[in-house]
Simulated assay, not measured.
Amino acid sequence: MMIYLDNNATTPLDPRVKERMKPFLEEEFGNAASNHAFGWKAKDAITWARGKVASLLNVKIDEIYFTSGATESNHLVIQGVVLHCLFRGEIDQCHIITSNVEHKCVLGAFERAQQLGAQVTILEADSEGCISAEQVEQALRPETRLVSLMYANNEVGSINPIAEIARLCRENSVLFHTDAAQAVGKLDLELEHVDYLSLSAHKFNGPKGVGALYCCTRAKEKLEVLMPGGGQEDGLRSGTVNVAAVVGLGAAAEIAKNKSHRKEIAVLTEKLLCGIRKHCPDVQLNGPKENRLLGNLNLTFPNVEVDDLEMELDEIAYSNSSACSSGQKQGSYVLKALGLSDDLAKRSLRLGVGTFTQEKDIDNALKLFENL
């Protein structure tokens, strides 16, 4: 039986979340935009879910907008800000900032922004995968419109000083966005000066294909709508809302606020790391040694051949890089940005411990590492 240790890629659906969703997959099928009893029930369910997400993030309920996930939310912000400048004839005064270790969708959005005429600065992360407030401050220009940096890195678990960077941006009248797909439900977020935040439900035991964008009231007017249509989500994101999925997101947010799962994840992660180090003394931990993302381990095995890694660990579900890039037969661009050679990057893997990981999973996985 496979041992699932890839919770940074996706997490199992919590049975309690599934139960909340079930009525809206069966008898409660109304369209939330319909003006009758079926629609009203759907609308009430969406409002309930919106409140749960807002409560988890400690923001206002009317600042939560449902999307298909963090990728869409990221594009809504990055392309939305750039198009806002473009449509007003200000694209030559549109400078945006990100880093070289962001998720592929953010880097893709910045590439598109550059094609549209925006000026782009890509900051280089340090050897642990972090970006400092000092780097951002040095990169700011009078024409800087947006800074977009992930809260926690999906591959190496580094956590950026988001509160400090967001405060710096607010002081300089620059919009700040964070892709918090990995952080929501795992970290206590500081969002006082954050203008936009992206999240995905499936990263914290909710359903796939649904997420949200936190957009503070003052920043909404700076976004150009990417998909005009029926005016759903207060006009920011048109399209019939997937009620069942949104309810699932709300249920997952309600459970995540409890935080009860965090201690057990931390204990099991430490046990896994210590056990691997016992069997493989030369293993290298990529990213920060302390203050790293809950449940995340990114490891390099410098003296183990790639084929041996794949063969000996074939009963473990893990990733070689981001799930969106893992199908590519090459080393992780994030690890290369941290200074690893292509050869060492290929000898690396990411393990993710989650809410439903059990101690027996760790014990069974460690037996396989004995053979490396």
Score class of each variant (00 low, 15 high):
330 Q>H: 11
72 E>Y: 08
206 G>F: 01
290 E>S: 07
322 S>M: 10
184 V>Y: 01
57 L>Y: 04
233 E>F: 00
365 A>L: 00
22 K>R: 12
85 C>F: 03
115 Q>D: 13
356 F>E: 10
316 I>T: 03
168 L>I: 07
116 L>C: 07
60 K>T: 11
36 H>C: 03
215 C>R: 05
79 Q>G: 04
220 K>Y: 01
41 K>W: 02
229 G>E: 06
35 N>T: 11
258 N>S: 08
51 G>S: 09
114 Q>F: 03
192 E>A: 13
210 V>F: 03
101 V>P: 05
351 L>Y: 05
118 A>S: 10
278 K>D: 12
240 T>P: 05
39 G>S: 06
323 A>D: 10
13 L>W: 04
183 A>F: 10
5 L>D: 10
61 I>V: 14
291 N>R: 13
112 R>T: 14
138 Q>T: 14
251 A>E: 13
71 T>L: 08
12 P>S: 01
198 S>T: 13
13 L>R: 09
86 L>S: 12
197 L>N: 08
163 A>Y: 02
211 G>S: 04
326 S>G: 14
120 V>C: 02
47 T>S: 15
214 Y>S: 02
258 N>Y: 01
114 Q>A: 14
327 G>P: 05
72 E>F: 01
250 G>C: 08
348 S>L: 03
31 N>V: 13
64 I>E: 13
304 V>Q: 13
278 K>V: 00
25 L>M: 12
229 G>P: 05
55 S>C: 00
207 P>W: 00
173 S>N: 14
205 N>G: 06
99 S>T: 04
123 L>G: 14
227 M>R: 15
56 L>T: 11
182 Q>I: 07
106 V>R: 14
253 A>M: 01
101 V>K: 08
366 L>T: 15
337 A>F: 04
191 L>G: 04
85 C>G: 10
319 S>D: 10
203 K>G: 02
35 N>H: 11
226 L>Y: 00
142 P>T: 12
16 R>Q: 13
122 I>S: 11
75 H>M: 10
101 V>E: 08
193 H>A: 14
99 S>L: 00
348 S>A: 12
225 V>A: 08
107 L>P: 01
5 L>V: 12
306 V>I: 13
62 D>Q: 09
141 R>M: 10
26 E>K: 06
35 N>S: 11
156 V>L: 00
62 D>L: 00
81 V>P: 08
15 P>I: 00
74 N>L: 04
128 E>F: 04
176 F>Q: 09
121 T>E: 14
93 Q>S: 15
49 A>N: 04
218 R>M: 10
43 K>V: 03
330 Q>G: 10
305 E>D: 11
153 N>K: 05
236 L>N: 07
300 T>E: 01
36 H>A: 07
117 G>Q: 07
311 M>P: 00
310 E>N: 06
97 I>K: 01
280 C>P: 00
285 L>P: 03
275 G>P: 11
343 D>S: 08
121 T>W: 05
36 H>E: 13
255 I>N: 03
368 L>I: 10
353 V>F: 07
322 S>N: 10
26 E>S: 07
104 K>N: 13
237 R>H: 11
46 I>G: 05
75 H>Q: 14
315 E>I: 02
